[in-house]
Amino acid sequence: MGEKTSGGNPYVQLSWAMIKTGVLGYGGGPSVIPLIRYEAVMQYKWIDDEEFGEILALANALPGPIATKMAAYLGYRLKGTMGAVVSVLAHIVPSTVAMLALLSAVQWLSGSAFIQGMIGAVIPVIAVMLAMMAYEFGERAVKGLGIWAGAGFFVLSFILLQLIQLHPAIVIMVFLVYGAFHMRMADTWRRRREARKAKQEQESGLKEKGGATHGMD
């Protein structure tokens, strides 16, 4: 299991990254994903965007909170079972302690104009972060599938999720299966094109060689 760290103690980096995502990820799993992506892909470079997208899709298809699944994967990816335990604990313990500490003041805080103002101010930030991540993944999908196929799958996913209201896990699994099939077929077509090109170059070389020999005769 390879480690991809930017220097320093992996456990310290993992703990600090997960503490930040757990405490600052207001609004549940979807709002935490851009924070986890920033720490894992951009800050510490443990994984790349492609691997992050794959794990995000799998985590969405599996039961349970998505943020803890992502934290567990990153910890395991970095330091095995112990890394997964440390990562999950660092992600959930600080926010759990904060919730318990504020439990006695929940009634007052829920009606506080100050707290309502904080909530109203942070929602646009979360929306922008999610939109940026969605745009980057959409851009990668267009590059991999082509603009027409990418747009078609966007429309299809919208219909399945919003109009038909199919369960997201089913939609994700269908697209994962298609993605695997698409990549396999694309690889097969690429090898065939390369083989045809090599054969044409070989035949062209033989013809040129034959012409040169005929000229010498």
Rank of each mutant, 00 (worst) to 15 (best):
V86E: 11
H91Y: 15
K69S: 05
L74E: 08
M82L: 14
M82E: 10
S87H: 11
A72C: 14
A67N: 03
V93G: 01
P65E: 09
A84G: 10
Y73L: 05
A84I: 01
A84P: 07
R77K: 15
L74T: 04
A90Y: 08
G64Q: 08
P65Q: 10
I66P: 00
L78Q: 15
A90W: 06
L62I: 08
G83D: 09
T68H: 04
L78G: 07
A67W: 00
A72G: 11
A90Q: 09
A67V: 03
T81K: 08
G64A: 07
T81F: 07
A61T: 02
A90L: 14
G80V: 13
I66N: 00
G80Q: 14
A72T: 11
L74F: 13
A90I: 08
M70D: 01
H91K: 00
A71F: 00
V88H: 07
A61N: 04
T68N: 03
K69A: 04
A84C: 07
R77Q: 14
V93E: 01
M70T: 05
T81R: 11
L62P: 05
P63L: 00
V85G: 10
L62N: 02
T81D: 01
L89T: 12
M70G: 09
L89E: 08
L89D: 06
A61W: 03
R77V: 06
T81E: 05
G64W: 01
A72Y: 02
A72H: 02
V85R: 09
M70I: 13
A61K: 00
M70N: 08
A61C: 04
I92R: 06
G80A: 13
P63A: 03
Y76H: 15
N60E: 00
A84M: 09
G83V: 09
I92S: 11
P63D: 06
P65N: 09
G83P: 11
G80I: 13
P63H: 05
V88A: 12
A72F: 04
V93S: 03
S87F: 10
K79I: 04
M70P: 07
Y73C: 05
H91S: 02
V85H: 13
L78N: 13
K69C: 02
H91E: 10
M70F: 06
T68D: 05
A67E: 06
Y73F: 15
I66F: 01
A72D: 07
V86S: 15
N60R: 03
A84F: 02
A71H: 04
T81H: 01
A67Y: 02
T81L: 06
G75E: 12
V93P: 03
V88Q: 04
I66C: 01
K79A: 15
M82T: 13
A71R: 09
M82G: 15
